[in-house]
């Protein structure tokens, strides 16, 4: 099976790859949004703590 055939998905490339792409996007968003937000929150809290100490 050639790589070209694999990406063509028997003519259904658009439907198959769009499905996998959207799934990937949604799952990555739900995974990384909380990580990024937590880092931001921790940075804010650290800043606040530093100010309170001064």
């Amino acid at each position: 099976m050639s790589l070209e055939n694999f990406f063509a998905m028997g003519g259904y490339a658009f439907y198959v790859w769009t499905s996998y792409g959207i799934t990937l996007a949604v799952l990555l968003w739900n995974l990384f949004a909380p990580i990024v937000q937590r880092k931001q929150l921790l940075r804010q809290l650290a800043l606040k703590q530093k100010r309170a100490q001064q």
């Binding site: 998905m9 028997g10 003519g11 259904y12 439907y15 198959v16 499905s19 996998y20 799934t23």
Partner: peptide, 9 residues
């Protein structure tokens, strides 16, 4: 055909 492969997600 290959369109059924969407089943895996």
């Amino acid at each position: 055909g290959d369109s059924y492969r969407i089943i895996y997600i």
